[in-house]
Design a protein around this nucleic acid. Sequence first.
DNA 1: ATATTTTATAAAAACGTTTTTACAAACAAA
DNA 2: TTTGTTTGTAAAAACGTTTTTATAAAATAT
Lengths: 347, 347
Amino acid sequence: MEAETTSITIHNVAKTAGVSISTVSRVVNNLGRVAPETRKKVENAIRRLDFHPNSRAQALSRKRNDTIGLIVPDFEGQYFAMLMEGAHEEAQANGINIMVLKAKGAESQIDVVKKVNSEGRTDGVILMLSELYDQVLEGIGNINGPLVILDKDVNLWRLDNILVDNRLGAFEAARHFIDVHGITNVFFVGGSEHNVDTTARARGFADALASIKIDANDKKFFGSNYSYDEGYRLAFEKISPLIKPNERYGIVSGNDDIACGIIDALMDKGVKVPQQVGVIGFDDSDIAIHRRLKLTTMRIPTKEIGRIAVRMILNRQSGQVSEPSKVVLKARLIVRDSCGCGKHDSQ
Amino acid sequence: MEAETTSITIHNVAKTAGVSISTVSRVVNNLGRVAPETRKKVENAIRRLDFHPNSRAQALSRKRNDTIGLIVPDFEGQYFAMLMEGAHEEAQANGINIMVLKAKGAESQIDVVKKVNSEGRTDGVILMLSELYDQVLEGIGNINGPLVILDKDVNLWRLDNILVDNRLGAFEAARHFIDVHGITNVFFVGGSEHNVDTTARARGFADALASIKIDANDKKFFGSNYSYDEGYRLAFEKISPLIKPNERYGIVSGNDDIACGIIDALMDKGVKVPQQVGVIGFDDSDIAIHRRLKLTTMRIPTKEIGRIAVRMILNRQSGQVSEPSKVVLKARLIVRDSCGCGKHDSQ
DNA sequence: ATATTTTATAAAAACGTTTTTACAAACAAA
DNA sequence: TTTGTTTGTAAAAACGTTTTTATAAAATAT
């Protein structure tokens, strides 16, 4: 009794059912007309033999993989998880798979996109772009397969593109302090000044102040990155000296990590948060609700981005849509406690 | 001037180089002997035409995809990200890809594993198992492709298996309070009593107490899940009444979320943490360092799990290893501040 | 010089599908 | 009856590789 290693193929089914392989194929794929009794014979054979079409042969013949490549710079933080969630949901609903790839630098991104595309390993690619995106887009050139660019505006390149309106998000965060809390002493604390997200958010912040005729120039602070420690440092060193006893303040943060650092630094300095100083984060990451003072924050619709990205690839693939499209999504204010809206009993 | 859509194949290369396709194949794959000048001709043609072997055709012919399936119940939390990190690292180093799949219930897991395997979409599968794992393993039966089971002990089933020694981890956490801090008033706060991780950790905790002749029965507390809020509730309602003014205590938590909830609840009750009550978490998730009081916690080597899982599949595939192996990894104590070891100046 | 072995390459078969083409049988129209 | 349509199915070609088999040329031995 030898181990049976060869899997059963369409030929076996055809033979068992007493028909040709093309008939089996037509039954499996619901193509063309098949006489009812023939269909039944084939279906019985399929069931009896437990036949599953070989996806590799299908891929070669159909010239597609039913697989989409998702290229991200890293797997850290919550962004990737949410993106994956959305992408997988839409993909699964359409019977296709997600291949996850990692590419960080410009060169690496170019390589991965080209490789995966030229080898036909995926039917389309979702690329989360790094900072140096002109360089990357130039390098990618005009690849033939569907390609969706996330998070960076690639206006000039006529590519499918999904963006978040960071400017508007920060604008609304600042306006929340102004409109709801009546606070006009607002600061912005971002990540690196070279980060496009930070600059867009800083712009929205400035726009909000401009809308009430206040100049934002001396109210923006930048760090070297998006970390808790950097937020702590900036608040400890730069912000806390500006806090006067009987004034109320609002701080718009570049992300939630920074916001948490800011809050802790101010508390350590004896400043009442959120009573005297309100803080609004950005991203609505996990940590926003894993603290005593729940973070008010701008939620990025990351899951939606993933979903739309897959949809775009599918549309492009089906040939229905021929023009590249750009989707701009809004961040949404999630009101919790750190802005001063909610409860803030103890300390 | 028509749009050139057909990609260039090995035939084009053969024709351009003036050789047969088999020669091109041998050059591409470094197989057999090829005369130096022939090789050069072929290599030139490849470069001139920018030829990339079609992975779909390769897959069909080689009967493999260079793709491993990673099946997880969800993409939440940090576990998935770290697993992905490790798996991708090892995969990339070996020129293979990761396809991410999601399957939550037992039925879904069975379906996905069987489907992906029978269709030949992956060369092997890494499965993060759900609670009902006997049912799943029974359903999967003896599939032919490589399969690695994560996190649950599948001793009876003779499958490749990677585990974390949760018992030992909790044992060491409890011993840290006993040995380093001289605290014997220790509690355990876990997730659901039906969760195998929780029960294993509770067992380790009890073993540690048994090692100093203390009965742990009235020192273990269980919640309905692994959440911050549940930790807060349990500490607020069950633990805090047990805290006597002049005694010191230690709490071993089922995970970091629970630990954070515990800390905040005790602080809200006016208990000094970590001065009077030390807390040790489990998992070393993001939130451990995104709080003022940095969490001491047992780090699960998740990245390592991902890496080893891929390696196991590769080994199995190459046929070198024929016997299923079980790898048990240790959790490691990451000492920070919440146990009482580090700094704890303010409040 | 002829026979034998080695080396380098070409030709053909295989991988398991889908898709196109061809062809009977059944039916309808003339 | 002949001719022309459908209709259902079979046969063959295609997808682009790898791998096996065959063969000519070169190198070595006799």
